[in-house]
């Protein structure tokens, strides 16, 4: 497969959030602001790239019957590493995302890419796939977070441009579903014309 296409497919064509509808829990939970979405997306990207890399390296040594438990151990290790490192060096971001970091383990995208892609493809393709999918996820979360932040608090990346409170519903959980629904509709429309 063309490596460029392999990289870019995560953004629109196979976007994990808008098209595959995977990883909904963090996508809806943390996206109360653009910066939270971006932070969560980048943390997931790191885990995706590292787990794809390792899974691709060891795929031939792991017997088929125990591949899922092995992948989960690998993924869980990287998630814990991200959690510890973030807690140590980015405490402010950790405070916002802390609760959701351990949930990267059960994010279907990570296991999905390990199982569906990295365990069947070469090292380089797997890394590029992880990077593309991860950044696609980060992009989706940032977009969703941005929309909710603009509508909900009248700000973007923490910079307030509107006085007052905005529409409270977009900060709360129902707003996440509403914003996600409209974004998916928009992406589908764009895909049709493209």
């Amino acid at each position: 497969m063309n490596q460029l296409a392999n990289f870019t497919k995560g953004f629109i064509k196979e976007n994990p959030v808008f098209v595959l509808l995977l990883g909904m829990c963090p996508a809806l939970g943390v996206t109360t602001s653009a910066i939270n979405g971006l932070g969560m997306g980048l943390a997931t990207t790191f885990v995706l790239v590292m787990s794809n890399l390792v899974v691709s390296l060891v795929k031939n040594f792991i017997p088929d019957k125990v591949r899922i438990p092995s992948f989960i151990v690998i993924i869980a290790s990287f998630v814990t590493i991200v959690e510890l490192v973030m807690q140590a060096y980015l405490p402010a971001l950790f405070e916002q995302l802390g609760l959701f970091i351990p949930l990267i383990v059960v994010n279907c995208i990570v296991l999905g890419r390990a199982e569906a892609f990295a365990s069947k493809n070469t090292l380089l393709s797997s890394i590029i796939d992880g990077l593309g999918m991860g950044l696609g996820f980060a992009f989706a979360l940032m977009l969703l977070g941005g929309v909710r932040e603009i509508l909900g608090s009248g700000a973007i990346f923490g910079l307030k441009f509107l006085q007052g409170d905005g529409m409270l519903v977009f900060v709360l959980a129902p707003g996440a579903f509403i914003a996600l629904g409209y974004l998916i509709a928009l992406i589908n429309r764009l895909k049709k014309t493209a």
Partner: peptide
Amino acid sequence: MVITLFVV
């Protein structure tokens, strides 16, 4: 399988 899981 045992060896793999142990090593991992």
